[in-house]
């Protein structure tokens, strides 16, 4: 058998195994389940729609908080000032080192009253701070990936550290930052489902409500999954378009 033949055989075997696994799982699903998409669509889909709207709101508000916060914290981690570096370090470790579910509980039960936060506010704060820790690490890696000579050249011309960062380093880091940032956006969207535990009636909360109200399980959960997936795909595509738009110009030439 030649190398190519062996490879083809291995690939076919892998596909077959995967297909077998899926078939096995599907075959074990309760086939007696009484599907009723008609009733679901008529009586309950509207509630999921409401939940979807709130999911979009809490996720975008969380993103609006996480993005600037993450950029600032990430830049702090690359700063020369040891105080700024320490603040960045603590921020990342605290929000990355504890479970989001626990953080949501703390925002809601401990911090919401003194800070005057609504349920929505607590959810946004929890999601935003949590995601900012990851965004900070993404920004830091992107900035550190830009050739050190760029910062040196900018500083040699008399630019301040922040001027050099803003006009020279960050624009070149953006391309490396975008793909992992897209993953982080999607993670934020999905993590917003955890806000259901503090009674915030986003998509997952509403899906559970529909389940207990209608005694249907398959339709609401599959629909919820499809809705999350749809938003994720839109986000992915959006970032990919942005990447392509940025890719044509400077980035190719950044590689000397």
């Amino acid at each position: 058998m030649t190398r190519t033949q062996r490879r083809r055989l291995a690939r076919a075997a892998a596909y077959a195994a995967a297909a077998l696994l899926v078939a096995l799982v599907v075959s074990r699903i309760d086939l007696d389940y009484a599907w009723d998409w008609g009733r679901f669509g008529r009586d309950w889909l509207g509630l999921l729609g409401k939940g979807l709207l709130l999911t979009l709101q809490v996720a975008s508000a969380g993103l609006l908080l996480a993005l600037p916060l993450g950029v600032v914290v990430g830049l702090c981690r690359t700063a020369s000032d040891p105080g700024a570096r320490l603040v960045g370090f603590v921020h990342v470790e605290v929000f990355r080192g504890t479970p989001l579910l626990v953080q949501i509980m703390i925002w809601y039960h401990v911090l919401a009253r003194p800070l005057g936060l609504s349920t929505f506010g607590a959810a946004v704060a929890a999601l935003g701070c949590f995601a900012s820790a990851y965004i900070a690490e993404i920004v830091r890696a992107g900035v550190q990936g830009v050739d050190r000579g760029q910062m040196e050249a900018a500083r040699s011309l008399g630019l301040s550290h922040w001027q050099a960062m803003r006009h020279v380093v960050l624009p070149q880091a953006v391309r490396a930052i975008l793909p992992p940032l897209a993953s982080e956006f999607i993670a934020l969207l999905k993590d917003s489902s955890l806000a259901s535990v503090i009674g915030f009636s986003e998509l997952t909360y509403q899906t559970r409500a529909v389940q207990s109200g209608s005694f249907m399980t398959f339709e609401p959960w599959l629909t919820a999954a499809a809705l999350y997936l749809a938003i994720s795909l839109v986000l992915s595509l959006g970032v990919r378009l942005l990447e392509r738009k940025l890719g044509g110009g400077a980035a190719q030439e950044a590689i000397r």
């Binding site: 000579g149 760029q150 040196e152 500083r155 011309l157 008399g158 006009h167 950044a254």
Partner: peptide, 29 residues
């Protein structure tokens, strides 16, 4: 920064800003 503005530096590896045009490289500072 005050001193650096008055002291020009040319590097072995050029360190031009690749995301800006040649003209913008000159006008930035």
């Amino acid at each position: 920064d005050l001193v650096r503005a008055d002291v020009g530096m040319v590097f072995q590896h050029f360190n031009l800003f690749p995301h800006r045009t040649v003209l913008d490289n000159l006008t930035l500072a």
